[in-house]
Nucleic acid binder design. Structure first.
Lengths: 230, 230
DNA sequence: AGGTGTGAACGTATTCACAGCA
DNA sequence: TGCTGTGAATACGTTCACACCT
């Protein structure tokens, strides 16, 4: 089954799960939560696929990589599946997040309810600007970026979120890495250079719009081709 | 070369460009802008690949889909390449964006400098809350969501950005689609049901953290395996 | 030399279709 | 009968390696 062999069966190793599958797991989890995991009811791959926007075959294959726990002829028990996915994603623990950069985006992130509700606690907030240092946002007081290194150790921080301007992003990443952080979420529109052991995910808001632009452009081209040529 | 045949050569059809390639084009473009397109200097695939974090082979292949314009033994002329990519992405025109939902995230998006600088103008802002309607953010006054439908036509809006809570997202999407919008950027953590002709891109901030969680978890597992088993 | 453009090889992801179990 | 779990088939994406041009 899995490449690991077959010493014991169910939860299955997190290695060998295709990255494409991993990227869909949070969506499955979100849909399951939205269903409300009241008592021991089940859901079919068809039904869960419908609300998550994937095909049922893909969903079944994805879940099979987790050593899935469906019952033939019935479906997946919601609470069991929820646990399975949470465990695979490593969401059985809390993560402590450092947020760096308190511009408008950083302020929005600091208050984003989706973080806390999914087990990510913003443990500390930093900026370099004297105007912002000391100011309060939600429960937190913005600290000087120079305190970052110490805070990571003292506050047991696991994840760094960079919401600085592009020009500061690499320096901040270097500080985070020196402090021992190995997972970074980067909102600055630039590529970070990091050691292999560090995982960076990047969110570039403008890129998303540019991709929509491509599709608009593409649709327009197709229309004009059809209209003109025939 | 391209599936289209060979009537004329260079700019190449936007169809038949692999989606994986399209998704990298904005990053190439950003890197080219960051280089500063002073006069007619060139860049090699090796150099551009380095700053964009891809392999040079992949970069060359990606660019070849655009009917690329490199010179063997020399490289790509920066300004020409910039144009080629911009044209492919449909960035030769301005887009007018409607932003719906003026919570903290919406406020940050309204002021995000990366939109305007890349040709996306926020043309109108909407919310459903009476507390927010009429308030000013940047140059804009928040309008009642009921005005959305009319505004899309009057203000020639092409793209809708949803920054509402999850509960309102589908309704807002329906309004946008009724008004004729075919491109939506969705920040609400839910799947939107839309006709095939409508393109939705979704950004879920919590999902990004959950994916980092997976990697942290994975690394921890690997460590414990190594430590224990040998 | 130096660096692009690209077929061919490889690897990964998705879909199909059905055996097998409740 | 109904729905999972999964091999086999297909489609897609990436890497390799080299012919070809300047």
């Amino acid at each position: 089954m899995t490449t690991t062999g077959d010493r014991t069966s169910p939860p299955a190793a997190t290695h060998s799960i295709p990255t494409a599958t991993v990227q869909r797991l949070p969506e499955y989890l979100r849909a399951l939560h939205a269903l409300g995991d009241t008592d021991g009811d089940t859901i079919s791959s068809e039904a869960l696929a419908a609300v998550t926007g994937v095909s049922s075959a893909m969903l079944r294959k994805d879940l099979s990589y987790l050593g899935a726990a469906g019952v033939r002829g019935v479906g997946y028990e919601v609470s069991l599946l929820t646990n399975r996915i949470s465990t695979t994603l490593g969401l059985t623990r809390y993560y402590r997040v450092a947020l760096i950069g308190m511009g408008h985006l950083g302020q929005a992130l600091a208050r984003y309810p989706g973080f806390a509700s999914r087990g990510f606690h913003i443990a500390a907030i930093f900026d370099a600007s004297p105007d912002l240092i000391g100011s309060r946002h939600g429960n937190h007081i913005v600290r000087d970026i120079s305190e970052l290194s110490g805070a990571v150790g003292e506050e047991d921080i696991n994840i760094g979120v960079i919401a600085t301007p592009e020009t500061a992003a690499q320096q901040v990443a270097d500080l985070l890495i020196d402090a021992g952080i190995t997972s970074i979420l980067n909102f600055a529109p630039c590529v970070l250079t990091v050691p292999q052991s560090v995982v960076v995910r990047k969110v570039d808001l403008a890129v998303e719009l540019q991709l929509l632009s491509f599709h608009e452009h593409h649709k327009a081209l197709q229309r004009s081709e059809r209209d003109q040529q025939l």
